[in-house]
Design a protein around this nucleic acid. Structure first.
Length: 469
RNA sequence: GGCGCGGUAACAAAGCGGUUAUGUAGGGGCCUGCAAAGCCUUUUAGGCCGGUUCGACUCCGGCCCGCGCCUCCA
């Protein structure tokens, strides 16, 4: 039985979809004005795993992740670049897709863009005004009246009085309440605008997610996710908007992933301590290393980014691929094997991927032990099981031979080592030397390759395998 | 100040009221021509102080420390 921690109740709850057999989930994506940083990628990977596992559990999953393609930061960046907004967002959407693909993140079923949903946004705002949850301020902006929604603050555990007391928001004269937020923004000259009953303007940030999720998944759906930093105010505001408009609940289960920290601080743009995926990938043997690092800890806790962590992820993956190496294709063991049961038990416990990875490591040892005992068919069967389970996390999906031929880049540029063919040739020469019991020559060849980052491993059958370090 | 999260061994990171987490790193052994890999084994744990209990890293209370949100942010 799958249990998921619900941010709304603060507890793990048995997962039961609203419509049996179907899961509708919406995840807040990113604002496209720059490259993905590690924090974004964590969110992508976390919900990619959630989606994969729900599908594995037998649900038909509809996964929506939006793209915010209009907001202040985009407008500002486009102006800085002297670039049309559409070009800027198209560029970063393409970059986002490419980065996500390299990490093995599957495309969402639907990737709505805010600018494509302006009619729905306008309809939603009209409804909110009609129901007394929104008003047109003197400034011309349309604002949400927080006081009209008594449940405001429930998700984030905040009380209105506390929020008002600590309000650092500049109190605009036109706001009835300092906590009221913008639904429709009166546009300034030169900014992108859409016509509306309240004058030319553009959507506020929060309203787009209410409009898009409702349009695509209905007024009440199963899972809504995003980074922990969206809990307040973004998700709180979404609830106020959607429930205010519909008069009934909006989302059954809220999921929030933890931050990526650097030196114990949240990775963020304002602190300047962020690393983009494009900064990191060139330092890795393969993007999978980053994915392994991300699934190596529980999604709700913080994760500490450091190069040392990536090196450890690389070593751990190396071990997994070593277990998988040179085994014939085989069918997995019949039924729910003990490892499958342990893996699923871990995942059923609020997606405990750290535990699930530990199960895979233990399974790798089982495979190694069977192989050493000469029980290749059994080892191959477990390897097949391993692949299936690891696929749910999106790790260890390469051909092992391919993995071992990849080199670990140094600082910046990849090592310029010998080609595969050159390695093979030296191995042949060494093999001849070994046959002639000329171990001095044999060892010399091995050392030459070692100096070039190639490690040789003499297998029992007289075969020599190699790997780049 | 309000709300919330966390402090586990050399580095990461989980579960669990009593039994080996797991990976990396270190020691020893087996295997190997020697290695590597693998397997076996092993050293370093649970912020501090109390309480509950036959027994607590694991439950309860207090304290200390760190972090996050309360403002755009995955």
């Amino acid at each position: 039985m799958l249990r998921i921690h619900n941010s709304l109740t603060g507890q793990a709850e048995p997962f039961e979809p609203l419509v049996p057999g179907q899961v509708r989930m919406y995840v807040c994506g990113i604002t496209v004005y720059d490259y993905l940083h590690l924090g974004h990628m964590r969110m992508f990977v976390v919900f990619d795993v959630v989606r994969r596992y729900l599908r594995h559990a037998g649900y038909a999953v509809t996964f929506v992740r939006n793209i915010t393609d209009i907001d202040d930061k985009i407008i500002r960046r486009a102006a800085q670049n002297g670039e049309p907004i559409g070009e800027l967002t198209a560029r970063y959407i393409a970059a986002m897709d490419a980065d996500a693909a390299r990490l093995g993140v599957e495309r969402p079923d639907i990737e709505p863009r805010a600018t494509d949903y302006v009619p729905q946004i306008l309809a939603l705002i009209a409804r909110l005004i009609e129901r007394g949850h929104a008003y047109v301020a003197a400034s011309g902006d349309v604002l949400y009246s927080v006081a009209s929604f008594p449940a405001y603050g429930r998700l984030s555990g905040k009380r209105l009085a506390d929020l008002r007391a600590g309000a650092r928001v500049e109190v605009e004269e036109s706001k009835r309440d300092p906590l009221d937020f913008v639904l429709w923004k009166r546009s300034k000259p030169g900014e992108p605008t859409w016509e509306s009953p309240w004058g030319a303007g553009r959507p506020g940030w929060h309203i787009e997610c209410s409009a898009m999720s409702t349009a695509l998944l209905g007024e009440y759906f199963d899972i809504h996710g995003g980074g922990m930093d969206l809990k307040f105010p973004h998700h709180e505001n979404e609830i106020a908007q959607s429930c205010g408009a519909s008069g009934h609940p909006f989302v059954k289960l809220w999921m929030h992933n933890g931050f990526v920290n650097v030196d114990d601080e949240k990775m963020s743009k304002s602190l300047g301590n962020f690393f983009t995926v494009r900064d990191i990938l060139p330092r890795l043997r393969h993007p999978e290393v980053l994915r392994y690092f991300l699934v190596g800890s529980h999604y709700r806790g913080p994760i500490h980014y450091a190069l040392l962590q990536l090196e450890q992820a690389d070593a751990a993956l190396d071990r997994l691929y070593t277990a998988l190496r040179d085994l014939p294709l085989a069918a997995p063991p019949a039924g729910r094997s003990i490892y499958r049961q342990r893996f699923e038990a871990a995942m059923d416990d609020d997606f405990n991927t750290a535990e699930a990875v530990a199960v895979l490591q233990t399974l790798a040892r089982e495979i190694n032990t069977l192989r050493a005992a000469g029980k290749l068919p059994q080892a191959a069967a477990w390897a097949a099981e391993f692949r299936a389970l690891a696929g749910l996390l999106g790790i260890a999906q390469l051909d092992p031979g391919e993995w071992f031929r990849l080199s670990l880049p140094g600082e910046g540029a990849p090592l310029a080592g010998p080609s595969d063919a050159q390695v093979e040739e030296k191995i042949r020469a060494r093999l001849a030397a070994r046959k002639a019991k000329d171990f001095a020559a044999s060892d010399r060849l091995r050392e030459e390759l070692a100096a070039q980052g190639v490690l040789l491993e003499d297998q029992p059958g007289g075969l020599t395998t190699w790997r780049r370090k």
